[in-house]
Amino acid sequence: MVGYRRYSVGTVAVYAGTSVAAVLFLIPFYLLVRNGLATDQEITAPGWRFLPEKLHWENISELFNDPAVPFARSMLNSVVVAVLHTLGTLLVCSLAGYGLARIPYRHANKVFYGVLITLMIPSAVTFVPSFVLVSSLGWVSDLRGLIIPGLFSGFTTFLFRQYFLGFPKELEEAARVDGLGYWGAYWRIVVPNSLNFTAAIAVITFISGWNAFLWPLVIGQDQESWTVQVALSSFLTAQTVNLHELFIASAIAILPLVIVFVVLQRWLVQGVAQTGIKG
């Protein structure tokens, strides 16, 4: 009896504590919506109101129609960059991972060491060297400079290789006996049977592409090539944009990823648990 009571009191305490933590974690999202749908006077008013008197949905059209703020363009750039970044990375790294895992080539191990060695240095640390190269290619303020250098991820290739090492060999061998060769077996058998893993990697790659900041900041030197993160940062540091536009712009900027999180959470959790390192 005593044990039962202690258990239930403990459970109540755990739920109370967890709920308090949950509320704390949700406050920043609440602030985005509250301030994004308010007027500047309401945001800066001394007394705290839980929500503005009236929700100003027209802030959204004001933001997109404000000629001083290149927000729509930056959203478009981010969509293009994140989508091509994801598709390109998956294609290049999955092919390479499969080749390294499966094809019996004499120097395959040496090539693999050449990949492993790049894992020791995070790419952010070498942004100056990368910028030097990209600027000499003439890709500064250019979507090519934003997308292409990021496609060749040693880490993603490493993950694909590890995954393909565990892929059931019998499936491929049957296909190769049927005359498909490695190339045919890869496209007809391996890729269709690896969709779960690929989806997990895709979600994580898309998130890191959408949220990337340092590299787009370095490359996006004129407004035309700003991604949404660079645009928000420059509104923030310039402080010429009014507050409600700043907040509604941020809310819109995180919307695609919030949707990804809600809809694709299964693959995302799997991806995080499998990869650990990115994110």
């Binding site: 301030n35 959408w210 900041f213 907040f247 999180f261």
Partner: peptide, 22 residues
């Protein structure tokens, strides 16, 4: 999900909320 969803936010957006609001 509640504890995980801030991962969707970028550092830029989070910094903006921290600097301009909290």
């Amino acid at each position: 999900s509640v504890f995980f969803i801030p991962t969707a936010c970028s550092y830029v957006v989070a910094s903006l909320i921290w600097r301009m609001s909290i």
